[in-house]
């Protein structure tokens, strides 16, 4: 029963035109990366890695925004959800299965992106072997994993938002804002802390600290610099980020479940 819902979710994603559009964009970006590498003087590998990983992040984000949110919204809006819920499928199972289905889809897309990134980087490495720098292909793979976990969390958040939002647009806006803010809070906090006490009003500091703890810290999942320069990835930090992402997802999903159980599906 769970499997059936997961499978339908995955299929819906795969048969969605948006996925092809996003893949096409990612493919073009990867080709562009190879072309661009010729312009760089020294750190060719680093720039290629930045572009590949940024493309992967952006594409994964688009999958959450334009496939994940749409699948859930359409299910509620067109009442296709009735078929499952008019049987003895518990609502909690339905939502969890939907989440897992979207996760599977996201994982599949991430795998494609990883393959594309690796092909791009190996190509660049062969073309500019002398200037490939300290790029670590292993860390590039780990960085993709981190993007995946990050997008799982964002998917969970979008599910939560779709439970409270009045329309898919609102869900869309809330999701993207959360991602944008969550990607920057750490930076803003560091900035304010390093600026000295008199430069900012205390109110600003409180607001920033509040935002830092209120929004998920997506910067934790950003391994672009680590992979591009082959820096050391501390096992403790990496483990913390993974646990943080998964734990946060579970918490958000549980909250969404509580709301979903009470939701009127008119």
């Amino acid at each position: 029963m769970l499997q059936a819902i997961i499978k339908v979710t995955f299929l819906e994603g795969l048969r969605n035109k948006a996925v092809y559009g996003i893949s096409l964009m990612a493919g073009l970006m990867m080709i562009f990366t190879v072309v661009l590498s010729g312009m760089i003087m020294r750190d060719v590998g680093k720039v290629a890695t930045d572009f590949a990983l940024s493309t992967a992040t952006f594409a994964a984000l688009l999958v959450v925004l334009f496939v994940g949110i749409i699948i859930l919204a359409r299910d509620l809006e067109r009442k296709t959800i009735y078929l499952a819920l008019s049987r003895s499928v518990p609502r909690s199972n339905y939502l969890v299965a939907r989440f897992l289905g979207l996760g599977l889809l996201q994982g599949f897309v991430m795998l494609l992106l990883l393959v594309a990134s690796l092909i791009t980087l190996v190509l660049v490495k062969n073309m500019y072997a002398r200037y490939f720098g300290a790029v670590s292909l292993g860390l590039v793979a780990v960085a993709h994993l981190f993007v995946f976990v990050q997008m799982l969390l964002l998917t969970a958040l979008s599910i939560l938002f779709s439970m409270v939002a009045s329309s898919p647009f609102v869900t869309f806006i809330l999701t993207i804002l959360t991602w944008l803010i969550g990607s920057s809070t750490q930076e803003v906090k560091l900035l304010i802390e390093s600026a000295g006490s008199d430069k900012f009003f205390p109110v600003v500091k409180i607001l920033v600290t509040l935002a830092y703890y209120l929004f998920p810290n997506f910067a934790l999942f950003d391994l672009k610099a680590t992979a591009a320069h082959g820096l050391t990835l501390h096992a403790g930090k990496a483990g913390f980020a993974l646990l943080y992402g998964l734990g946060y997802s579970v918490a958000v999903l549980s909250l969404a479940l509580v709301l979903f159980k009470r939701k009127e599906l008119t």
Partner: peptide
Amino acid sequence: LRVVSGQFKELSADVSFL
């Protein structure tokens, strides 16, 4: 720039340089 580029700092660095 650091704040608005969020997770795309490195990309932004590349663009600045180019």
